[in-house]
Design a protein around this nucleic acid. Sequence first.
DNA 1: TTATTGGGTAGCGTAACGCAACCAAAAATT
DNA 2: AATTTTTGGTTGCGTTACGCTACCCAATAA
Lengths: 162, 162
Amino acid sequence: MSRKRFGDMNCGIGQALEVLGDWWTLLIVRDAFFGVRRFGEFQASLGIAKNILSARLEHLVEHGVLSRSDIGSEGERFEYRLTSKGDALLPVLTSLREWSDEWVFGRGHEPLIVRDRVTGRRIPKLRLTDADGRALSRRDLRMEAGPGASRETIRRLQPTSR
Amino acid sequence: MSRKRFGDMNCGIGQALEVLGDWWTLLIVRDAFFGVRRFGEFQASLGIAKNILSARLEHLVEHGVLSRSDIGSEGERFEYRLTSKGDALLPVLTSLREWSDEWVFGRGHEPLIVRDRVTGRRIPKLRLTDADGRALSRRDLRMEAGPGASRETIRRLQPTSR
DNA sequence: TTATTGGGTAGCGTAACGCAACCAAAAATT
DNA sequence: AATTTTTGGTTGCGTTACGCTACCCAATAA
């Protein structure tokens, strides 16, 4: 049987995973954030099989995360670049990195430090806040059905207590 | 050949994917954030095969994202709950949801709205800012090797321009 | 003109995953 | 107390995804 797909799920996480959930995909996006653009660069950087890389790049282009443009004088030389949809993944990559910096590597063992290019100061960690900037945790949140909610989603939200 | 693993990668994204990257895993975590705790609840909610669910729960427990505790009067009834390491994934789930709200569903078609439990106001979107709260984009950032950087990582950061 | 690099396909083997069947302990029901 | 149902799995089998190697053609470099 085919692997179950999440695209029909009425849930942002499911939709995001439909685009980004395959093994390797997010690392390709990360490399794109690092400035990688060419097929061969991705391949060398990641050590991924070429057929898989090919499929992933195509998938990301189809979903509008990367664009593929021809840079050869007459075809056959391509560049993959982040679209604005791809650029918008910055908070996703950042939250993943910050999570493992803290919970996998541990403070003081980060492999990478990100700074403001101009001031040189470190970027404050992403966190959920209320409109006044106060930090919020899971317990402070309430979910409710949005305009695009399916009956499924609405039902799931009924059981009052979270 | 075995699927390539990312655990030895000197990169936060790779480490995070080692824990969360498998198909289904993040949806299980999402359900846990929604308050799901029992094996059967996860199964019914996700429609996942039981052996896969079993493997994923075990994996998440091993990596300290969920804890498994016995709630039967004498064994054999379990509850899976988020640990603080799991709780710390809130920004990851949130950024993924916000990304697909904007780029997949589109504004006005969000299936889910998250509010402050007390004030009822919507939670502002996660964004990268500098220390003064000004929004930053990819172009405003500079990466440098951290204390835990491998030679590999350092080499990757050399090619000055990003 | 030949060699090399870029960007792939094709074919094969293995690992991951989906499904259905089965199972034992705990809890509920009679 | 005996039976049934629920819970939380495990096992086996088939299919799909993925990794590796080998090949290939067009564009560029020598």
